[in-house]
Design a protein around this nucleic acid. Sequence first.
DNA 1: TTGAAAGCGCTAACAC
DNA 2: GTGTTAGCGCTTTCAA
Lengths: 356, 356
Amino acid sequence: MASDSANGRRETTVSDVAAAAKVSKATAARALGDYGAVSDAVRDRVLAAAEQLGYRPNALAKTMSTGKSHTIGIVVGDIENPFFAQATRGVSDVAKAAGFDLLLSNSDEEVDAEDSAIAVLLAKRVDGLIVAPASSVDTQSLQSAIATGRPLVLFDRAAEGVDVDTVVADNRAGASRLAELLLAAGHRRIAFVSTIGHPAEYRAGDRLASSSVGDRVAGFVASLQEAGVPEPERFVRLNARRDGVDTIVRELLGDGATAIVASDSLVAQAAFRTIRDLGLVIPHDVSLVAFDDADWTSLSAPAITVMSQPIHEIGAEAARLLVRRMAGHGGPAETTVLPQRLIERESIAPPRPPVR
Amino acid sequence: MASDSANGRRETTVSDVAAAAKVSKATAARALGDYGAVSDAVRDRVLAAAEQLGYRPNALAKTMSTGKSHTIGIVVGDIENPFFAQATRGVSDVAKAAGFDLLLSNSDEEVDAEDSAIAVLLAKRVDGLIVAPASSVDTQSLQSAIATGRPLVLFDRAAEGVDVDTVVADNRAGASRLAELLLAAGHRRIAFVSTIGHPAEYRAGDRLASSSVGDRVAGFVASLQEAGVPEPERFVRLNARRDGVDTIVRELLGDGATAIVASDSLVAQAAFRTIRDLGLVIPHDVSLVAFDDADWTSLSAPAITVMSQPIHEIGAEAARLLVRRMAGHGGPAETTVLPQRLIERESIAPPRPPVR
DNA sequence: TTGAAAGCGCTAACAC
DNA sequence: GTGTTAGCGCTTTCAA
């Protein structure tokens, strides 16, 4: 039975409290829920009875009748990834302040998993949804979420044709800046490495599964092009999750790349290890820069020059936008672009002339 | 009204589907919920109608009548902390496999926050609870959670008098091993630093707010004692969150400590920075070891010797135990102690004779 | 200010 | 195999 807990005890309900306080269910509910009008005497009586019976409100029943669950659903790529952990904390902080709890799901960057995660969250009647879309192109599940009328906010990447509030960082500018730094040091054979899946070799103008990686590549390529580097996309390598960062970095270096831009700190970490295992030294033999100011980047030797993102704020802002929508704000969809910040350290040096 | 979504549309319900398929509500529910007996013809008709109307089940209503929410509540210290992020992933993986979702809360290691988090989770009728207790001593909220009859599993630290399944690492042994390593290198003035709050200076036998830190300190002190070090608790420093790791490390070094055991990777990171800022070099001037194989510990120069914990597994095991309880398993409370693993790197060297 | 009764969307007896 | 009916615990008219 629904009313019996596992060990046979029954949860005490408003009715129980009402009976104990000798008032109607409605009155007890008013006192307990602190709404409507109740005389002080009655309120005290009800509250005392509740206390005495160990009454615990059933938020689900409340949701059933009010339609509000005070819960927001969040789907991230992987909560173990520091980026998502930090963003989630940002979301959590503003959500809690606004009276919402978090129902969390990992998509592992798979559209199918994202799909079912969203379906479940919707079934559990979250008041709103915050998601880092697994794909900026395949937006089925996002569309169906929108169709339910519940507010949805995207973060970290945008999704094509999905007209909702979105919070991203200025990836294009950040990537350009990083490329310029490397170009200024004299590099011409600069690689860009990302784990993102892509059906073929990258070619100028390709639409990537993640808009943020797409923006980074675009900014990167544009800067090289502007500097007159021929075939600027020659050293762009995607699918690093599938093929392995280690393998890719070895190939890149074998092909003569003199500098590497890592699209995130996880890629940078793997690249750092490979370079070290190869017996090469950064930045003397290879220059390495990355996105995200992960803690290790300032502790490693050498410390890594990075493009820092306001990760916590990305999550917090997404939550703020969502809270506003849930409160009924009806303006047009808004895209917030947060600035990235360059932190120069010691991982860039002029390219070493090729040994021949 | 509960039935109207924000934009005025109504969610389609079992009744709507039933009407469209021209069957009773019960039959439609059976077809939709895939239980009871329904003829193929009718099932097809119902499913088609559902599809056509865009029916989305209301999991809350289901919970109301079945009593099962298929949701587990988890409260961690801080999801941004890599330890909790990894453990949460472990929980999430087995929870998902067993058909449960995660309702997440941060306690910030505050008993009050933990208290209200648990109350909310209980109000939302989670089927079970996984918590890393903010205090191993002040166990009010845990007791009240148990009182509801819903299964509770603790992880990372145990709680006094709270007789529930618990998953911890073998902190005492790990700390002993670390201390022995340092002793073997010739150190006698070894410090132990933790962020845990404590009302006074640490004295042998003190009960700490976190049982795991308590175990570590105990193992640490025991090893020093066994080695004949006088006043083994002399260099034990707690309250590092309040007082600042930086300040404490400077004091410790000023007092002649020659080695430091960091109780977690965050403390280690701060200590590493302070030591570097002081112009000292590890391990020549100071030896440093820590708990948790954080990514930076193998990337820093020098790489840090650490006592690694099976973090993901701690979370996964906690979830497994909980799933078993939720399935009705009624045996006595179980405490799983997972082994820690030493990873020797380059941060230990003999103490430098004091300059005088 | 209080109470009676209907309703939220679903499941579960119990008949037929 | 299908339908009727009564809940689950709460909020919300509507009367009194």
